[in-house]
Design a protein around this nucleic acid. Structure first.
Lengths: 335, 335
DNA sequence: TTGTATGCGTTATCAG
DNA sequence: CTGATAACGCATACAA
């Protein structure tokens, strides 16, 4: 069933009494076609319900008008209640819509997924590739770039790769947050760090370390992986090891949210006893109890900027090897 | 730059000293190839870094090995902090990964976006289409189906369309929730209804209406659009119009979350003064203050089931016109 | 301005 | 089991 034989250029040409080439010109908006002929072709197209076969077109034009967004991350992780990935997707989507390109979303958590991604992109099914949420020193971006595929990374990867990237100012944001805590008299400032195989995790920890060290304060560190569960566990650890802490900087809002609850369960008042600052400024941050003071990163813009870079490379332009977007401390009630 | 001329079947064939046909057989895993030749071809493929051109393959096979997920919804809406869309994407993604197909995500909020979607899908760039979050009586699914494109809707659309769908048991879930409130002595039960241009909004309201009516209780209704802001506004309206209400059923967890906060701001204790039940069971529900009692819908499974149906249709099988997944009342502290 | 002819890279049909 | 060869549907250089 299905597959009601679709009309081809040839069919339209016969119906309109012209050649295939002419139909092709009309369909692609060439201006060098006489008005009456153009009208006849348009009518034939409408009558037959002709739609160009994109595979055939790609074959000759060498373009697909679609861009891949690759997240080397299990789907589970990408779509937890973390707003970061959705935000990036949204930014990418906006920018592609403006450019009239299609978004091909590829989650590459498993090894099989990574294979698929590689086959698909190297198979020239997309005009460019945007990576997001790189772990460790992933060799895939550089490999694709070497094959001549336009590729950009949204959020820097580990190691030095020749792939252009867009990222936010992690260190700057964290520094402002920790300084704010210090200025408000906090002296036992702990941190719930993010995963240390990601630049975001590493740099946010660096920002914390440098700032407390500069103030002559001790380092109180526990590790999480940006999720709520890991944040709760890390907060419990911190409370056990450093019961006298008076502030916590969490490397993600989800971990901060969990810390808030864990602190309350432990009988600590926020911010009276312990001040809490997060990182991200996801929507939920305004609805926690108390509302969360946090470092806002321009997630949407991260996706948009990355996409613009890919499109520019695909168009043959050259782009800046790095683009850093600003972060900002958003004051609410938790610190 | 870029475009380092990619090797073709032809090149591999020359290098291996065989014909194109043979290379094609090896690449596609045909068993009718002598072992030494197969080895030679594999080596040539590896040496040249050959990757099949997917457009060319599609052109002849009439398949693309990719499925489109269409959300007729502005990106802003899809990726707010609502967990529903991400959950569906995740389910679809899992199922497609298992089937070794690619996911093409299409947000079609704007009219231009809808055009793109139509061109792209009718252009045979995908083997099938899954719709999610239909508004009103969207004619697009039926139109695509008429063109012979395998299409399924995840979440039913309004009006009677011949398109197969997968949905959850909205009415059943809401009925259980409202009955639970009644059994616990609540008598002034209000609802914050969802958008009435969506089946999910309509049916959840219906479930509420039927259940309170059957118990001889009054209908106290305010409307929202599933978002937090709309939930807060609706809650304020309800408090003004029915200050004596003792329970609220909100048609989404986000609206329930906002209701929780609005009630607290109004000096009402939850659940002592007012019981609150939501719908969805997003992750945040377990972290609200107090933790939210809610109707869980199997979001992930909604995506997975829909995807399986599309794949089956694309494989030439016929599928059930409707598939209804169960919902479940999850008791926490808010009711 | 329009038509003709060719090629894009594969797969599939047929002989051999 | 392998190799020619013909589609697949379109865009474009070139000719008219």
């Amino acid at each position: 069933m299905t597959t009601a034989q679709r009309p081809t250029l040839e069919a339209v040409a016969r119906r309109a009494g012209v050649s295939r080439a002419t139909v092709s010109r009309v369909v692609n908006g060439s201006t060098t076609v006489a008005e009456p002929i153009r009208a006849a072709v348009h009518q034939a197209v409408a009558e037959l319900g002709y739609v160009p076969n994109l595979a055939a077109r790609s074959l000759v034009t060498q373009r697909t008008d679609s861009i891949a967004l690759i997240m080397p991350e299990a789907a589970t992780r990408v779509f937890s209640d973390d707003q970061v990935f959705p935000g990036i997707i949204r930014g990418v989507s906006q920018e592609l819509e403006a450019a009239d390109k299609q978004l091909v979303l590829m989650l590459a958590g498993s090894p099989a997924g990574r294979d698929r991604v590689e086959r698909y992109t190297t198979g020239r099914h997309v005009d460019g590739v945007l990576f997001a949420s790189l772990h460790g020193a992933d060799p895939l971006p550089a490999r694709l770039a070497r094959l001549g595929i336009p590729v950009v990374s949204s959020g820097r990867g580990l190691g030095d790769s020749p792939v252009p990237y867009v990222d936010v100012d992690h260190v700057g944001g964290v520094t402002r947050a920790v300084r704010y805590l210090i200025e408000n008299g906090r002296r036992r400032i702990a941190t719930i760090a993010g995963p240390q195989d990601m630049v975001a995790g590493i740099e946010r920890l660096t920002g914390y370390r440098d700032t407390v060290a500069a103030a002559g304060l001790p380092e109180l560190v526990a590790y999480g992986d940006f999720t709520r569960e890991s944040g709760a566990a890390a907060m419990r650890t911190l409370l056990t090891e450093h019961p006298d802490l008076d502030a916590v900087f969490a490397a993600s809002d989800l971990m901060a949210h969990a810390a808030l609850r864990t602190l309350r369960e432990a009988g600590r008042r926020v911010p009276a006893d312990v001040a809490v600052i997060g990182f991200d400024d996801i929507e939920t941050a305004a609805y926690t109890e108390p509302p969360l003071t946090t470092v806002r990163q321009p997630i949407l813009e991260l996706g948009r900027a990355g996409t613009r870079q890919v499109l520019r490379i695909a168009a043959g332009e050259t782009v800046e090897p790095a683009l850093i977007l600003p972060t900002e401390l958003v004051l609410r009630a938790s610190a």
